[in-house]
Amino acid sequence: MKAKVYVTLKKGVLDPQGKAVMGALKTMSFDEVRDVRIGKFMELEIDGASIEKEEARIREMCERLLANTVIENYRIEIE
């Protein structure tokens, strides 16, 4: 099965990269952009039969390595 993991900065955590990208978009006259937040997208190929079991495993992967829960949130999608 394939899992998609989205890692995003928590609300309130400063994202200087997002700010810089927003500045560039404004310079390019995309004035409607109010905010940009940059995150990570990961695709995992998983050997496993049970979606429930693998979801719990991927959650553990996120907690222990894929995300830093001090500053980041994560979301998992399994296909």
Binding site: V13, L14, P16, Q17, A20, N68, V70, I71
Partner: peptide, 11 residues
């Protein structure tokens, strides 16, 4: 140790 080290504010 608690907390995290993030990108410098000036990038």
């Amino acid at each position: 140790l608690p907390g995290a080290l993030m990108r410098n504010r000036g990038l």
